[in-house]
């Protein structure tokens, strides 16, 4: 990418700032105090989710940056994306991907608060290692720059202010909060589309000039988040529907925060290319998350139907009702062995 490319004009910056404010405000409006309390009810899933979001994801970003030999600013941007808290859209994807919306919401809420502590820590941990690795593989020493930790914390706080305001709004007026939430969802799409379109119109070259490794990085970080997040939840023997939730929550990051931090914290010469990576990530994650969601919908159908059935039975038949449904069968097709198969008979009530 050429350095003279002007991605963001001052007017765009202002627009972006307003949009980010609206989006974060809407996110706050969708969070309830109960979500945080709810979160404490399933500590195990939440802990795995935490490890996956703040342990696994930054590590994946770091590994990807090294593997693709990204330049230092891009590598830092990638790790920054890896350290982000979960995005609000993950709740919708969790809903359609037959996951647990409650877990998704509580993970989003918890990670947004924890990001205040974790993001600076993680960046402080990974940034020196990026520079060390890069110089050892012979990348130009000049690209090394200082990570503005103070700025990052400041911008994080700045971003979290509208979240708090949104929560306050929800506390006072539910209908207004609902409107804010819907507006924000729409605004999110508009921002991404606007950035992509202006970039394409003003310099279509950018898409051609973007190196394959940058494309790979922006797509790969989300995808590997989905895959490894699921794997980690699977290794921890969590319920299938929690696995799907953690997977989606790990891969889907809060893009607007990354854009805000990059805008507010880094100097002009490297800012644009870092921003470009964040925008590419935000675009591709919608597509990859949709595909993963479709796959989860298909594969998780039986498990989800069992779960729904259980929920409704408990609701209608009393909270101590149990029916001996057969557990998820392995790939074996019961149609091929019809009458010989015996399932668990009446379980003791």
């Amino acid at each position: 990418m050429t350095t003279d490319t002007i991605l963001i004009r001052p007017i765009d910056q202002l627009l972006l700032a307003i949009m980010i404010f609206v989006i974060m405000f809407g996110m706050g409006a969708s969070l309830r105090g109960e979500d945080f309390r709810e979160a404490l009810k399933r500590p195990r899933a939440l802990l795995i989710g935490f490890l996956s979001q703040f342990g696994l994801m930054p590590l994946l970003a770091f590994a990807l940056a090294i593997l693709l030999r990204l330049e230092a600013p891009l590598a830092v941007a990638l790790v920054l994306i890896g350290c982000l808290p979960g995005g609000t859209t993950s709740n919708m994807f969790a809903y359609f991907g037959r996951g647990s919306v409650a877990l998704s919401v509580s993970m989003t809420a918890a990670s947004t608060i924890l990001a205040l502590l974790m993001m600076p820590l993680l960046l402080a941990f990974y940034a020196p290692r990026i520079f060390a690795r890069l110089s050892s593989v012979g990348v130009d020493e000049n690209t090394v720059f200082v990570i503005p930790h103070g700025n990052i914390i400041a911008s994080l706080i700045l971003v979290l202010v509208p979240v708090g305001l949104g929560m306050l709004l929800r506390h006072f007026s539910r209908p207004w909060a609902k409107t804010a939430e819907d507006t924000a969802g729409f605004a999110g799409i508009v921002v991404i589309l606007y950035l992509i379109l202006t970039a394409a119109l003003r310099n279509g070259r950018m898409f051609i000039e973007t190196t394959p490794s940058l494309y790979l990085a922006s797509i790969g970080i989300g995808l590997s988040g989905f895959v490894f997040g699921w794997g980690m939840a699977w290794l921890s023997r969590l319920e299938p529907r929690y696995r799907r939730t953690i997977s989606l929550e790990t891969g889907i990051q809060n893009g607007p925060i990354a854009i805000a931090i990059i805008l507010l914290s880094f100097r002009d010469s490297i800012r644009d290319e870092m921003l470009w990576l964040a925008i590419l990530y935000s675009t591709f994650i919608v597509i990859t998350a949709s595909i993963i969601t479709l796959i989860y919908r298909k594969c998780g159908q039986y498990d989800w139907e069992l779960h729904r059935n259980r929920v409704i039975h408990l609701r209608l038949f009393g909270s101590d009702y149990q029916a001996p449904y057969p557990p998820l069968l392995a790939a074996a097709d019961p149609q091929s062995q019809p009458l010989t198969r015996k399932y668990r008979q009446d379980s003791p009530r």
Partner: peptide
Amino acid sequence: MANSPPNLQPRNIGDLYRLASVHYGGMPA
């Protein structure tokens, strides 16, 4: 779907009730 239930082949409707009891047991009918 890998999880479809067994394919009951009753000889008559009374037999259907019996087979359902054998195969589905404690599930709600």
